[in-house]
Simulated scan of single mutants.
Amino acid sequence: MALYGTLINGACIIVGSLLGLFFSKIPERYKETVMHGIGLAVILIGLQMAFSTETIIVVLLSLLTGAIIGEFVHVEEGLNRLGAWIGGKFTTKNENFSVAQGFITASLIFGIGAMSVIGALDSGIRGDHGILITKGIIDGFVALVLTTTLGFGVVFSVIPVVLYQGTIALLATQITKWLPESFLNGFIVELTAVGGLLIVAIGLNLLKLTQIRIGNLLPSLLTIILVYYIYQLI
Rank of each mutant, 00 (worst) to 15 (best):
G10K: 01
G140N: 09
V161F: 13
A50H: 03
I57T: 15
F183L: 14
I214K: 07
S107Y: 05
V189D: 00
F103R: 03
L198K: 14
L108H: 05
L40C: 13
H74G: 09
L60C: 11
F187D: 02
V42Q: 01
A50V: 05
I133N: 11
W178A: 12
Y231E: 09
G83Q: 00
S107V: 05
I68D: 00
G111R: 04
G102E: 00
G136K: 00
K25Y: 05
L121F: 11
Y30N: 11
Y229T: 14
H129T: 02
L79R: 08
L19T: 10
L19G: 12
N205K: 07
F152N: 06
R29E: 12
V99D: 03
L150D: 00
F183R: 01
A201T: 04
Y228G: 07
G166V: 10
E190A: 04
L150R: 01
K89E: 15
W85G: 14
L3K: 11
E76H: 11
G136F: 08
A172Y: 04
K25L: 13
V117H: 04
M115K: 00
L7T: 07
M1P: 05
G111I: 00
F23I: 06
T105E: 00
Y231V: 08
V142A: 07
T176Y: 06
K31L: 07
V161A: 09
A169R: 05
A143Q: 01
V59L: 12
A120N: 10
A41Q: 05
I131M: 13
V155K: 03
G151N: 05
K177P: 08
I138Y: 13
G196A: 06
Q174W: 10
Q174C: 08
T53V: 07
I13Q: 12
F97I: 05
L179K: 12
I43S: 09
I38P: 02
L150H: 07
A114D: 06
T53S: 15
I56C: 03
G113Y: 06
G196N: 12
C12L: 06
Y4F: 15
L64S: 13
L82I: 14
G151V: 02
V161I: 15
G127N: 07
G87Q: 02
F22T: 14
R213V: 02
G151M: 03
G78I: 08
